[in-house]
Design a protein around this nucleic acid. Structure first.
Lengths: 245, 245
DNA sequence: ACCTGAACACCGTTCAAGT
DNA sequence: ACCTGAACACCGTTCAAGT
């Protein structure tokens, strides 16, 4: 009947088809379940067949990153640097939104892919066109860090659940006791968590609006950059003087 | 002669000894070379012996994080919130300085260790004592993200070397051609890299002062927080109104 | 010349057999 | 009761044998 459900199954393997399948597999089952063997199986192919299209797993990951980052679609951008930088960064965030593995994989790469260089070039260009010196642009780019791609590094990747020692699903009574001890030992953490998580059943959080937090910090940085630009800020104490150290 | 070089070799295994050896191994050979089997070998012990002291590799990593984060030694801190927050964060940076694997491992944990909770509690406490509302403190903590522990997420972990496609050590002529193409396609990236890396032989960088960049961004954020505190900023439009969404 | 199965050198962890 | 070797179910990649 639905024999044609996967029309690509019998199509000859190509680098593009390998990359697409890898992205889909990582999206569906998580990056830690992406193995060369598993990917080959998914494609109905012997593991070694993949090595005709990617040199090794590293190159596969590079290709996946390039595919996702290449999907950044910046909106029509006005002339002001702030809107241009902001728009590109939020577009990057949007492109990476449905690929939760992407940030982790990008980080683990040793160098930029072409699509990544293109994105960074565009953001740097927006700063420069907006009147930023090379010096200030450089430090601004560092200050943004991974935020340039629309993601930030929280302390943990996963939402904090129970304490690390505790196994999953402790009895309710024990949980209450653990909470009381937590509140006693870490009163400020508890206060913060209590104020933000009351919509949620989790002990230590969620109920945070990631998008709000992202834009909050981004705008704080952009405001800071603008202020320094207006001041003609330079990292060297005087225009002619060299940097100490 | 120097039979006593490693006096602990014959000492009975303990959780502490396991953790200490794991930290040393990760420091010396990199986190990717840390395996249960390798660690056991290092301790002169059969792999399964480790499982008497840690439940599994996850718990081993939790223990390593706690050991390193527990080593944060904040300086004597003045009463002002800015100095207190800044001092604690830079102390965290110092503690993690000689453990390059730590940031990556912390990130991969699913929840906080006790030492980590203690550190965060202290930083939150500094904000609150300094007159920050729970609301503003919450957003400030998110804005700091992993910076609270003294590290930031650059786009890549490793220093950018050659382009990802290129193998290690291409001939000089080919390298020059690749550079010309890079400069043509990514002019702004090239300009930035050229301005900062002239002390270095690398094409795309280094010559950046990590500590300077860290403090630059940190101070930009702390300045922003202070400004919002003075304004009595709230994420809700009015004190009585609820948040939209 | 191309393709591919078996093999290699690893993993983390289970489990049953030995003391 | 404790300890531990062999085994299991995986990896990424090499390599030689088959077509």
């Amino acid at each position: 009947m639905a024999q044609q459900t996967d029309p690509a199954r019998r199509a000859p393997l190509s680098r593009d088809r390998v990359l697409r399948a890898a992205v889909a597999l990582a999206d569906g089952t998580g990056i830690e379940a992406l193995s060369m063997r598993r990917l080959a199986q998914e494609l109905g192919v012997v593991p070694m067949a993949l090595y005709k299209h990617v040199a090794n797993k590293e190159e596969l990951l590079d290709g996946m990153v390039d595919a996702v980052v290449g999907g950044i679609r910046p909106p029509d951008l006005g002339p002001d640097w702030r809107g241009a930088v902001r728009g590109r960064i939020l577009a990057a965030r949007e492109a990476l939104r449905s690929h939760p593995w992407a940030s982790q994989v990008i980080r683990s790469r040793s160098g930029p892919t072409p699509a990544l260089l293109a994105h960074m070039d565009a953001v740097i260009g927006a700063f420069r066109t907006g009147g930023f010196s090379v010096d200030l642009t450089h430090h601004a780019m560092h200050a943004l860090g991974s935020r340039i791609l629309g993601f930030t590094q929280e302390v943990f990747d996963a939402p904090p659940g129970a304490a690390p020692g505790a196994a999953a699903g402790p009895p309710a009574a024990e949980q209450a006791a653990a909470f009381r001890q937590l509140a006693e030992r870490y009163p400020h953490v508890t206060e913060l968590a209590g104020a933000t998580a009351h919509d949620d059943d989790s002990v230590v959080g969620r109920g945070c609006d990631d998008q709000f937090e992202f834009e909050f910090a981004l705008d704080l940085l952009l405001d800071g950059f603008e202020r320094l630009r207006q001041q003609g800020w330079t990292s060297s104490p005087s225009p002619a003087g060299g940097r100490a150290g």
